[in-house]
Design a protein around this nucleic acid. Structure first.
Lengths: 228, 228
DNA sequence: ATACAAAAATTGTCATTAATTCTTTTGGAA
DNA sequence: TTCCAAAAGAATTAATGACAATTTTTGTAT
């Protein structure tokens, strides 16, 4: 399918084609979705021809997609053996958390210092539905939580940091891990962070977020089954 | 070419073939080298057929390589338009530095807390050739500097962090940027950091490294030509 | 059960074809 | 003539299918 877009460029009306024919990128998103939604299980081998047929494409764009996913550490490719969905053990999850803390704390400081007021308000709005209520829908909260952290990183103003988050796939991994602590506990922490941002207190926001994330990390470390 | 490796696996002698036939990975390393060594210039378009012929391979493995390099942010692919070598402006270099600071400060804390004594000694040895001398060879120092920081990250014990550094290509970018400050200035800072690590003072090492990197970052920001 | 050999499945690579973009040429109006 | 727009042609990328190399599975004999 091809879509035509008309726009003004250098004062002239130009027609631009936006072709949705990039099978590689499409496949990338689909396979990523399949991994996150556990349709492809960790450790499972991906048979290329089979999956390609399932997606209705040939192997070349699928291989492109797998290449990307390997770079994002979501799959592992062993030459001549094939590609398997990567699985993270507890030690690796803690490693991921440590990286996340390092980058996200930096992001929140930048956000507090530079973000526009409307962006701060937007962040605040994400939390509203869950205030003043006892029955918190876990699924909705998880989504809001994910959005909350994503917004801070995306709007930090440091685009490279955001790319690193995506390419390093920290967000996806963290989504896959799911909620570590109950909403009741984390909601207040989120609110406090927003307050600090609102006051443009970057250092305070950073230390609050750090403690917020460290708590979750500690829970994973102290989890039975964690091997040091 | 095929190489056979003999090794003991589960108590049995096993022969393993290591085929260097992975053209994709080979091409990846070659092209990466070409970018770092400026044989392919920033902004330059890569014509796939041309480069493939130059490397003596077909376009399929070259595309694999470019896919990887795109994930590492070293090249940029515009669908149906081609692949160009990515160039970083000052603003992006600062962004890269901010990410580097976040991750490397975390790494040095872990290193100070967990590293074996021999690793700390190894770090110290890297600096020795440049002490007690007035004539510092810039090139040799740059290599030592690069090794110094690489060691801290690699031996932090957090493998994911190291992968993130590689995939995010922070190290390569930083190598490409080169020395920001004169050796005389940074050598003493490096020595102080080693001392803190030697004393297992993670917090001290972290704050010293942070200041060390922040100084370089500030120099870039204050550089004429930096657009905020 | 174990070890080996043959068969099947799967991956990596290439050459070809189709689709898209870029460049040049052509034609017409100011 | 000069400028712009449309059309034709060349160049380049994307995708498909086919083939060869390699691994995994299956079957058979020890």
């Amino acid at each position: 399918m091809t879509i035509f877009v008309y726009c003004i460029q250098n004062g002239y009306l130009v027609t631009m084609k936006i072709s949705s024919s990039d099978l590689g990128k499409q496949a990338y998103h689909k396979v990523k979705q399949m991994i996150v939604s556990k349709k492809l299980l960790p450790g499972q081998k991906i048979v290329q021809e089979q999956l390609a047929e399932q997606l209705g494409i040939s192997r070349t764009p699928l291989r492109d997609a797998l290449q990307r996913l390997e770079a994002e550490l979501l799959v592992e490719s062993i030459p001549r053996r094939g590609v398997v969905v990567r699985q993270f053990n507890d030690r690796e999850i803690v490693e991921i958390y440590e990286c996340r803390i390092a980058l996200e704390v930096t992001a929140v400081r930048l956000f507090a210092e530079k973000a526009q007021q409307s962006q701060i308000d937007g962040l605040r709005k994400l939390l509203e539905p869950f205030e003043h209520t006892n029955e918190i829908d876990e699924k909705a909260y998880q989504k809001a939580d994910s959005n909350f952290h994503d917004t801070i990183i995306k709007r930090s103003g440091n685009q490279f940091l955001y790319q690193l988050f995506q390419k390093g796939n920290l967000l996806v991994c963290i989504d896959a891990i799911g909620l570590v602590r109950p909403p009741k506990e984390t909601l207040q922490e989120h609110l406090d962070i927003v307050t600090a941002i609102h006051n443009r207190d970057g250092a305070k926001a950073a230390s609050l977020l750090k403690e917020h994330l460290e708590k979750s990390k500690r829970l994973i470390v102290e989890n039975p089954g964690y091997e040091n």
